[in-house]
Design a binder for these strands. Structure first.
Lengths: 209, 209
DNA sequence: GTCTATATGTTGATAGAC
DNA sequence: GTCTATCAACATATAGAC
């Protein structure tokens, strides 16, 4: 082998950067080539078509965002730990790559037919079981008087929404709340624990002191 | 005046439908013309360039989603009412137009430079004051022992996130949770009150019974 | 205001030398 | 594997008749 791996990785790096920001139709192959410091012909040597290259980048992004959560939910940890871990996981991932959520969601919205298949194949096929187990876990904690009753789907969605949304809104937030980059980072750092506490405060049944 | 207004509105209807799904670069002027049942030349007669037409559709969408919330937050209602109203507002708007959030956010992400200006001009210039007043309202309720202390920014973001996110995730949710369209609608209907209750449960300080 | 025809520029993709 | 040169298709936008 020569520089192949090196070149292919450079292409992917450039493709990530540009696709994540501009999406499939907004990105130009020539732009990616330039960012990778090669010429257009090389792109087509490593990836037959633009769609091929894009699919690779999309799947990679999708796998980073969603299957992880299902994995945490399916673990043997207790409810507290799961909630804190999910919040913390997104906070860490999206601090580094804040464009990921909008990239994945807009790609799906732009071409649902194409990606629903990709998605189907990359969601753990036991995700329904995992939700069932979570429901049992919630019911058990409710039985013990620790938490109130709540639909597990609402719980997960609420937690994931609060974890992801601020990053999707980043450009707007800084405007509306008048933050600069440092203020935004501070805000996000606060949320790492604030989100988990918000959720736990909502579902926990307080005992009288 | 003849059919002008009619034609212009037909163009905008078609442009909304297609831009909302595919974004600026994914949409084709010929596609919009076809959907509006006119020819391409007419598009350029009513809107000089594709960018002009898009800007019109974007601003319209942006105004529907964000300024409203600031208006509710700035009203004289009490905290309970504001929370329920925001949740209810988004539930109603996005049930009809679920693609709106991803459209707006991806448009901004694709061309931040261009839209940050548009956004700046269309956010109420007293939004900082409004956040200040909300902080006072929260502090007052906290003083009275009704709610716990919470940063108003986190409160608003959490509420808006939970209200909007399920619609942005619609294609994924139906897959992950195995819902059909009817099940999704039922789920969303539940959330209209469930989200507000979730937030209120989190911030309210329970008295012993 | 509405149409047909066309100009002008880009884009993704390939052919073929090295 | 990497490059230069080029093609064919398409998209936005305009000219000009009605």
């Amino acid at each position: 082998m020569g520089k192949e791996e090196n070149t292919k990785e450079r292409i992917l790096e450039a493709a990530r950067k540009i696709f994540h920001q501009k999406g499939l139709s907004g990105a130009r192959m020539s732009e990616i080539a330039e960012a990778a410091e090669i010429n257009k012909a090389m792109l087509h040597y490593y990836f037959k078509t633009k769609q091929d290259l894009f699919d690779h980048v999309f799947l990679e992004a999708f796998k980073q965002i969603f299957p992880q959560v299902i994995s945490i939910v399916g673990s043997d940890k207790n409810l507290d730990e799961k909630i804190r871990e999910i919040s913390s996981f997104y906070n860490q991932l999206l601090t580094e790559k804040p464009e990921l959520p909008v990239f994945v969601l807009s790609s799906i919205q732009e071409n649902a037919d194409h990606f629903v298949e990709t998605i189907t194949q990359n969601i753990p096929n036991n995700s329904m079981e995992i939700m069932g187990k979570l429901m049992m876990q919630i019911a058990a904690a409710h039985q013990k008087g620790e938490i109130r009753a709540i639909d597990p789907r609402h719980l997960i969605i609420n937690l994931v929404a609060m974890s992801i949304f601020p990053f999707a809104m980043k450009p707007l937030l800084t405007k509306i709340f008048g933050m600069d980059e440092a203020a935004f980072q501070a805000f996000i750092t606060e949320r790492k624990t604030a989100v988990a506490e918000f959720v736990l405060n909502s579902i926990t049944l307080k005992k009288e002191s």
